[in-house]
Amino acid sequence: MKITVDEVKCCGAGQCVLIAPEVFDQRDEDGIVILLDAAPAAEQHAAVREAASVCPAAAIHLGEEA
């Protein structure tokens, strides 16, 4: 899994931080997403998929290559 985030589209809702806190965080100054781990371990994949699906701005993109 290879994660990319779109900081321009991000609306800072923080849903990803609630669902996958080891992979996503928020910038203190404006709440925009910080990607902590672009290629997380397999046990994180389900949470990351959920975060991408729930993201209200559709700002999380998932690729399958390592």
């Binding site: 321009v8 910038r27 203190d28």
Partner: peptide, 19 residues
């Protein structure tokens, strides 16, 4: 609309982070 929307919104959006 963006980008002016984002410029103004992001001046205050940090108040509403999950933390």
């Amino acid at each position: 609309d963006d980008p002016e929307h984002a410029r103004l919104r992001r001046m205050v959006s940090g108040v509403f982070t999950i933390k």
